[in-house]
Amino acid sequence: MSEYVPPKVWTWDQENGGQFASINRPIAGPTHDKDLPRGEHPFQLYSLGTPNGQKVTMLFEELLAAGHDAEYDAWLISIQDGDQFSSGFVSVNPNSKIPALLDCSGETPFRVFESGAILLHLAEKFRAFMPTDPAGRAECLSWLMWQMGSAPMIGGGFGHFYAYAPEKFEYPINRYAMETKRLFSVADRRLAETPYLAGDMLTIADIAAYAWLGTFARGEAYGDAATFLEIESYTHVERWVAELDARPALQRGRKVNRNAEGWAIERHSAADIDAVM
């Protein structure tokens, strides 16, 4: 096999993007006009049941379980069908990525995009799942940003080259396998010290990290990736995942926004999730 030599100027080859070639492009903005639906609840979530989308629905369900007025409508955004490139969705998230939130709880609705920003917004709004003391808040935000920075390495890096790329190449798989294992090691060392990432209480940092690390611990990520990466060797992560797996609200949040058996395609009331649990 001849070595790839990059051209002087890169050009877009639509035929060389692997499984997601049809939805990846190097330009921003909408491809078609379509308004987003709007429900009756204070929060309108436009999402898909991927780890990044599950972060937000899991937090909403935890807020509801804790007695907060956090009712929400969750609308399915099918990224395979290009829903994220509609004019309505781009107006809520100019980055065309799920999840995106429209906060309609006040007089003037406003958008919040990027999963970490949505988690932080809701935690501050309801004063829940984030410590209030400066040191605890800083620890929580540090681990939240750690997760946000690590997800592209795990998903777009390891996940893409291990499971989705049109061809398997040793160098990128080794490179991102090493980084994914390092990130698991970071979490494992921390969880050997404390029950949760930010200390003694469940926070948005745990919810964000659990959405990704939990899929590996349960053997749900990228085929046999859990075996390939020896995820069971991270015993403190495994303990933490098992504890979060036992939280009913988190499991409810994991069941939202996917068109598949055992999932709620949309969520407009608790009954929608009850029907698939």
Rank of each mutant, 00 (worst) to 15 (best):
Q251D: 07
L229R: 00
E170I: 10
L213D: 05
W12H: 14
I207A: 02
G199A: 07
A135D: 12
E114C: 11
D133N: 12
S87V: 09
G157K: 07
N24P: 00
A264L: 04
F110D: 02
G49E: 08
I27E: 15
P94Y: 05
L229T: 02
Q80R: 14
W212K: 01
W75H: 15
H268G: 00
V276M: 05
D245E: 09
K168W: 07
A260K: 15
W240M: 00
S115K: 08
A192P: 02
I23L: 10
I118S: 04
S86R: 05
D200Y: 03
N95K: 11
V92I: 15
W263K: 05
L102P: 01
E71A: 13
G136A: 05
C104H: 09
L102K: 12
M130Q: 12
A242K: 14
F161C: 07
S86V: 06
Q251A: 14
E167K: 14
H32G: 06
Q251Y: 03
V256I: 15
F228S: 08
S87Q: 11
N24F: 10
Y171P: 00
R182V: 02
G29Y: 07
A264H: 05
E107M: 02
F113R: 04
T227M: 00
I273K: 06
A217R: 01
M201G: 13
P26T: 06
S78V: 12
S78L: 11
D83H: 12
N16E: 14
G116L: 12
P99R: 05
N259W: 00
G67D: 08
M145K: 03
R247D: 07
D133M: 07
L229Q: 04
A242H: 06
P6F: 12
A192V: 02
W212H: 15
P152A: 10
V237D: 03
W240H: 02
N174F: 00
G88K: 10
P99S: 09
A74Q: 05
R267V: 12
R218H: 09
I273N: 04
L244V: 02
R239W: 02
A226M: 01
D33E: 15
L59E: 04
I79G: 01
W10H: 10
Y162S: 09
A187V: 03
F216W: 08
M145D: 04
F169Q: 14
Q14Y: 10
R239N: 06
N259S: 13
R252T: 06
P94R: 06
E3W: 11
V186N: 00
E261G: 10
R252I: 02
Y164M: 15
Y171N: 07
A246K: 01
N257Q: 08
K34S: 13
G199V: 05
P94D: 08
P248H: 06
F129W: 00
I265R: 13
V92C: 11
T215M: 14
I207V: 15
P134V: 10
S22M: 07
M153E: 11
P109E: 06
S150R: 05
Y210S: 11
A165P: 08
V112D: 11
L120R: 10
K125N: 09
H41R: 14
A70C: 07
A65M: 09
E243H: 11
E261V: 14
Q147W: 01
T31C: 13
L101G: 06
P37D: 09
S269E: 12
G67W: 07
R175M: 12
D224H: 08
A100W: 01
P109C: 07
Y164H: 15
M130A: 12
V241M: 00
R189I: 02
G116F: 10
A242W: 03
R137H: 09
A208I: 04
Y46R: 10
